[in-house]
Amino acid sequence: MLSSNTLGHAAIHARRQRRLSRKSLGAALGLCTFVAALTTWLATRTHIVDLGNEQHLTDSGLLQEWAEGAVIVMIRHAERCDSAPGPCLDDPTGITVAGSQAAGQVGLGLLQLGLNDADMLSSPKLRTRQTAHFILGQAVATEDWLERCDKQFASEALARKRPGHNLVLVTHNGCIDHFARDQGVPGGERESGYATALFVSVDGKGKARILGRLNPPAWQRVLASAGR
């Protein structure tokens, strides 16, 4: 027969085991909740694909969206003269010679896509006006909101998108960053290089969807796809 002390120790041990089991269950449930929340959060993130990749270009639907006049393209100004070693185009507050050439590449790509029904706007800064000139071959109307780069940038851009007309915006990295942030793009993916274009489709209800990004050297692939 077991002594009362033995029975007492056994009861205490059993209670401890139950407490440990409850703690383990609670920890497991907490971990599951955290993983589920993290998975949900990650699912809401938007990742910007490289449209220089032919498969990404095809999957994005860019060419069809552009043909339907359903696209906003935001282009960062070309290489700044005041932060690059290369020769300046002219004014030191503008772009470099290499930057003007990169902007020309972008312009050839946009012409291949078609600009007949496109609306075009630029930031009033000299570097953006010069970039727009080399992209589009003409002076472009300027609007101040394209250089303010504040939290209203996304709504300002969408408000100017006319149905059936693509919208070309020559602007700044900070402005494009605000738009990407508004679309749920993670911080490490929002940076736009010089003369890089971010393409966004806009549906009939004004809802935006990021199609992808294209840097100047990759335009040749778009030209080839558009010319098929």
Rank of each mutant, 00 (worst) to 15 (best):
L2I: 15
S3R: 02
S3T: 13
S3C: 00
S4F: 00
L7K: 15
R19S: 04
S24A: 14
L25E: 13
C32L: 11
F34Y: 14
V35W: 14
A36C: 12
L38W: 10
T40E: 15
T40G: 15
A43M: 08
T46I: 12
T46F: 11
H47S: 01
D50F: 00
N53P: 01
N53M: 02
A67K: 13
I72Q: 03
V73Y: 05
V73E: 06
M74P: 11
R76Q: 11
H77R: 04
S83D: 14
A84N: 13
P85M: 14
L89F: 02
P92Q: 09
I95F: 00
T96F: 10
A98R: 11
Q101R: 15
Q101K: 09
V106Y: 10
V106C: 09
V106A: 04
G107Q: 06
L110F: 10
L111K: 11
L115W: 08
N116M: 08
T131D: 02
I135H: 03
L136F: 09
G137K: 08
V140M: 03
A141E: 11
A141L: 05
T142E: 06
E143D: 11
E143C: 01
D144Q: 05
E147R: 09
E156P: 04
E156Y: 09
H165S: 10
N166I: 08
L167S: 07
L169I: 10
T171Y: 00
G174E: 06
C175E: 01
D177K: 09
G184Y: 12
G187E: 11
E189I: 02
R190A: 03
S192A: 06
A195M: 13
A197W: 05
V200C: 03
S201E: 01
S201P: 01
S201N: 00
V202L: 11
V202K: 13
K205T: 13
I210H: 01
G212D: 07
G212S: 08
R213L: 05
R213D: 06
L214D: 00
N215A: 07
A218R: 09
Q220G: 04
V222F: 07
S225N: 08
S225W: 05
R228A: 10
R228Y: 13
R228C: 06
